[in-house]
Design a protein around this nucleic acid. Structure first.
Length: 260
DNA sequence: AAGTGTGACAACCGCATCTTA
DNA sequence: CTAAGATGCGGTTGTCACACT
């Protein structure tokens, strides 16, 4: 599995794209589709490598790209998802229509890290616990599983529904078939059935307050969910993990935690 | 006005993973 | 089954514009 030789080929242009190059690429893709990116530049008459063309198209020229400033809601979503998924920019981008992984990565490094730092400092100064809670951090580099309240009170699901029938958000698997959704939801419900007791959510929250490890119950649910997924759904991208993480995210979100 | 620092964003690099013959 | 090629992804760098001294 050798790495594809790319832009080092002599004669290929690098650096910023000119309007003419953009026009040629847009024109070609609109008429022929991108097909094979590697052959595209030759066919389109561009002195670029395929990789550069693909990047330019996916990050800038695609017609469905939403350009311009990120709304506060988008920023909040990125923050939430980053807490869930870590630096998996493409997984985050998949949940923000019209935004690219590159753009999200940039906005994270330039805006959001600063914003979070400020918010954190403000919270410390006010001696008020951050609203961003329910932390199940693994390490600094691991994806975090957290739930950020949208300014509302944190609630415990069992105050609203039975512990074995936590409702699932329907927004989760827009990129999967309905059957897969059903199987995954069943797997999740199997996994959490009987494992979430009256202490589950309060322990989850207190584990964050204490900055301590995840509760055993949470780990048990998570582990059970993953094995249930494997047996019920079959091979699944457990390493990529975005879908599983998103289910956790939506579970937590859908659970509408009440005050603890 | 010139030099320097900083932020924002586009683009590149190289590894990982997927696809296909 | 395997290897080569294609593509995806995240980290990093380059460039430009603007603010500040």
């Amino acid at each position: 599995m050798g790495r594809a030789p790319c832009c080092e080929k002599m004669g290929l242009k690098k650096g910023p794209w000119t309007p003419d190059e953009d026009r040629i690429l847009i024109n070609y893709v609109q008429h022929h589709g991108h097909g094979n990116w590697r052959r595209l530049p030759k066919l389109a008459g561009l002195l670029r490598c395929g990789k550069s063309c693909r990047l330019r198209w996916t990050n800038y020229l695609r017609p469905d790209i939403k350009r311009g400033n990120f709304s506060r809601e988008e920023e909040d979503t990125i923050i939430q998802l980053h807490e869930m998924l870590g630096n998996r920019w493409s997984a985050i981008a998949a949940r923000l229509p019209g935004r690219t992984d590159n753009e999200i990565k940039n906005v994270w490094h330039t805006h959001l890290k600063k914003r979070l730092r400020k918010e954190h400092e403000a919270a410390v100064l006010d001696n008020v616990p951050s609203k961003r809670l329910v932390t199940m951090s693994h390490t600094n580099n691991e994806p975090h599983a957290k739930y950020e309240s949208h300014g509302g009170p944190i609630s415990s699901p069992q105050t609203q529904q039975s512990s074995s029938s936590v409702s699932l958000s329907s927004t989760t698997t827009e990129d999967n078939s309905g059957n897969d959704n059903k199987c995954i939801k069943e797997a999740l419900e199997d996994a959490i059935s009987g494992l979430i007791d009256e202490n589950f959510w309060s322990e989850l929250v207190s584990s964050d307050d204490n900055n301590s490890a995840m509760s055993d119950d949470f780990l048990a649910v998570s582990s059970e969910f993953q094995s249930s997924l494997s047996s019920n759904v079959g091979p699944w991208d457990m390493n990529g993990g975005g879908m599983v993480d998103c289910f956790w995210y939506d579970l937590l979100k859908g659970a509408e935690l009440a005050d603890v």
